[in-house]
Amino acid sequence: MDVLSDAIAAMRTGRPHSSRTVKSAPWGVRFPASDGAGFHVVLQGTAWLLRPGAADPVRLGPGDVVFLAHGYGHGLADAPDTPLQDAELAPDGSWPALPDPGPASGERTLLLCGAYQLSRARAHPLLSELPPFVHIPARVGTYPRLRAAVDLLGAELADPSPGSDSIVPALLDTLLVYLLRTWWIQERPERTGGTGTMSEQKRMEGPGGWAGALRDPAVTAALQAIHREPSRPWTVEELGAEAGLSRAAFARRFTTLVGQPPLAYLTWWRMTTAGRLLREADTPLRAVAERSGYTSEFSFAKAFKREYGMPPGQYRRRVSRTG
């Protein structure tokens, strides 16, 4: 698997959910903070995004997308001064239907909203480095794949047909990848109208950070090697050879862009992989240790406890009770 797909798979739990809602002004809803991530798309009409701690609301027009990577509480309304009604997530983690505060007499807004259930215990930097609110404005000719995924999802929710229960989660997973790819990998227009601060934008677009890592062919080659074979006893020299660089040059570039040395990231990813295996399957501990790059259960258990604060067997029992 590639790095972006691996990062999503490592954090995702449960099934994603979405809803398509028509609102008529005046309307406003306050979404609470959650453990997952979510998005809003304005299909028709306009809406205002109200962010806690931010002085200015953000106007959303037709086709605008907002991605909330960290599950922060926020408001969505037809106007900045419209009173908000509290909303709660359903027990399955889905966004509720937005409460209707009155008769359908005002300007109509068509919204597409979705929620992803994610584990924050081992948040990959690809997600943890995102700003609280990613605003992707609609511009003619930009992000055609993201727009196509939004159109397909909206059409499927508007007119469910046989197979929709399988198609909608798949489209939601596809949309999540396109959202992250749009921010991290693809060429982006200037984002001075987005919801991140200018300092956040400069940090993301500068020489460091995962935006730089995923755009750097040498570092990307090494990351792909690690994710392809996490159990291999990699050395810095071998990873540098994958990157086509000398040991010293590779170590400097990798550390600058990724934020930690190559072998430190390798260990972190091995432990993240081990945690996912323990959560999702009944794989024997010996097999988990081998797939995580350890030749003995003892050395694996010692490393795992150092990362998670408990032995792997106890971790498996705990997550099985709470999962």
Rank of each mutant, 00 (worst) to 15 (best):
G36A: 04
L239S: 08
D35F: 02
T283S: 08
S292M: 06
S166P: 02
V3I: 15
V168L: 09
L84A: 03
A33L: 03
P96M: 02
S320L: 12
Y116T: 01
W48Y: 11
Q224E: 13
R139G: 13
G323P: 06
V219W: 09
Q201M: 12
P96V: 05
L152Y: 12
P99F: 00
F39E: 03
L152M: 15
E129R: 03
F31D: 00
Y116I: 01
T235N: 03
R276P: 00
R317P: 00
A104P: 01
S161Y: 11
S166A: 15
P52Y: 12
A218D: 08
Q260E: 15
E107N: 04
Y143T: 06
M1R: 13
G75F: 02
L76A: 08
A77H: 07
D56E: 15
A87I: 13
Y116E: 01
T197W: 07
G259H: 08
R253P: 02
E238K: 05
G114A: 09
Q85I: 10
W184K: 02
A54T: 05
A37Y: 03
F250E: 10
W27N: 03
G206T: 10
A148C: 07
A249C: 13
A221V: 03
D6G: 11
T267L: 15
S34R: 14
D2W: 12
A77Y: 05
R232A: 13
A222D: 06
Q186M: 11
W268A: 15
Y308I: 04
S299G: 03
R120V: 10
G53Y: 01
V319T: 14
H40G: 03
G73W: 00
M11K: 13
A77I: 08
G45E: 04
L49H: 03
V140W: 03
Q201I: 15
T195F: 05
L49M: 11
S161Q: 15
M11V: 10
G93F: 02
H135V: 14
S199Q: 10
G71K: 00
T272P: 01
Y265P: 00
G106W: 02
G63L: 08
G14D: 11
P125L: 15
A249L: 07
S246M: 06
D92K: 07
F300H: 02
I226Y: 01
T322S: 15
S19R: 13
V236Y: 14
P125D: 12
R108I: 05
G53K: 00
R188D: 08
D165I: 01
